[in-house]
Simulated scan of single mutants.
Amino acid sequence: MTRAPYDERVTNTVTAALELHHVTKRHGVGAAAVTALDQVSLSIPRGTFTAVMGPSGSGKSTLLHCAAGLDRPDSGAVVLDGRDLTGLDETALTRLRRERMGFVFQSFNLVPTLTVEQNAVLPLEFAGRRADGRRVRGLLGRLGLGDRIDHRPAELSGGQQQRVAIARALLSQPAIIFADEPTGALDTQAAREVLGILREAVTASGQTIVMVTHDPVAASYADAVVFFADGRIADHMARPDAGAVAARMARLSARGAA
């Protein structure tokens, strides 16, 4: 797999698709409060594939939610595609998510009454943008869905449904795609195919992807892995392989259990 170089330093908004500056997020109040993110600073360069890993409760899902503007940090700043999310109201955040972000979830989130093509172009329609039919069909064809365009989700395998979700995320040409356990509901073969598609989107098209995963094999498709523990970045790994990722996760989990 060809990987782009990964720079761990905080970069400027010309080269960074996403920046977090000293982001803190707490859940709960008083003595019961839990610090999910503790002064986290991170930069994701454009055109790279980053996996985020950590034990349960480490803060990785909160990171994704804050980065995507789905949750607001208590302090610090999130800058996405050069825009500071801190002062944006909900209307502006919704517009930014619609126009500059793509999402791929474990549960696919397809509309059961719509066809493959209709599901793929739905975000564009919500944004008031006209879909280029030739481009839509070309992308679906490259994703192995050329003969499934008029099918509905119930007529597709899990892997095919996730490919539709990826097409939906890619069609709006977002600054960044957030993927939350995108292979969690797939069998091994389908998962490898989906990960290959995500890898190709980065390598061939310069897409930026941030993927939360618990799977070392999935993480091995990324350019780099960021490991979280106790709400903080515990480690980085460039050019990961599955064995090294699994070993690092085992050490983190053992430390948390100690």
Rank of each mutant, 00 (worst) to 15 (best):
A4S: 15
A4V: 13
P5Y: 13
E8G: 07
E8Y: 08
T11D: 10
N12P: 00
T13K: 01
T13C: 00
T15Y: 00
A16K: 01
V29Y: 01
A31I: 04
A31S: 12
A31R: 13
A32W: 05
V34M: 10
L37T: 11
V40M: 11
S41M: 12
L42C: 01
L42G: 00
A51W: 03
V52S: 07
M53D: 05
S56C: 08
S61Q: 10
T62D: 05
T62E: 06
L63M: 09
H65T: 09
G69E: 06
P73K: 05
A77P: 01
V78S: 06
V79Y: 05
G82F: 05
R83P: 00
G87A: 10
E90T: 14
T94L: 08
R95N: 09
R98F: 00
E99R: 15
M101R: 04
F103R: 02
F103T: 03
V104C: 03
Q106E: 13
P112W: 10
T113M: 14
L114Q: 08
V116E: 02
V116W: 05
V121Q: 04
P123G: 13
L124A: 14
A127C: 14
R130F: 06
A131N: 08
A131S: 09
R137S: 03
L139D: 05
G141V: 07
G144W: 11
L145M: 13
I149Q: 02
I149N: 06
D150F: 08
H151M: 14
P153D: 00
L156F: 11
L156I: 11
S157V: 13
S157Y: 10
A165E: 01
L171H: 06
P174I: 06
P174Y: 02
P174C: 08
A175I: 04
A175E: 01
E181H: 03
E181M: 05
L186F: 06
R192F: 10
E193H: 14
V194C: 08
I197L: 15
L198V: 06
R199L: 07
E200M: 13
E200N: 15
A201N: 04
A201K: 02
A204W: 08
S205D: 15
G206C: 12
T208R: 07
I209M: 09
V210C: 03
M211C: 13
T213H: 04
T213A: 08
H214M: 13
H214R: 12
H214F: 12
D215V: 06
V217Q: 09
S220D: 09
Y221M: 06
D223C: 14
D223S: 14
A224Y: 05
D230V: 05
G231Y: 09
R232W: 11
I233D: 04
D235G: 07
H236C: 12
M237A: 10
R239A: 14
P240S: 09
G243H: 09
G243T: 13
G243Q: 09
M249I: 10
A250H: 10
R251N: 01
R251P: 00
S253H: 08
A254L: 14
R255C: 02
G256F: 00
A257L: 10
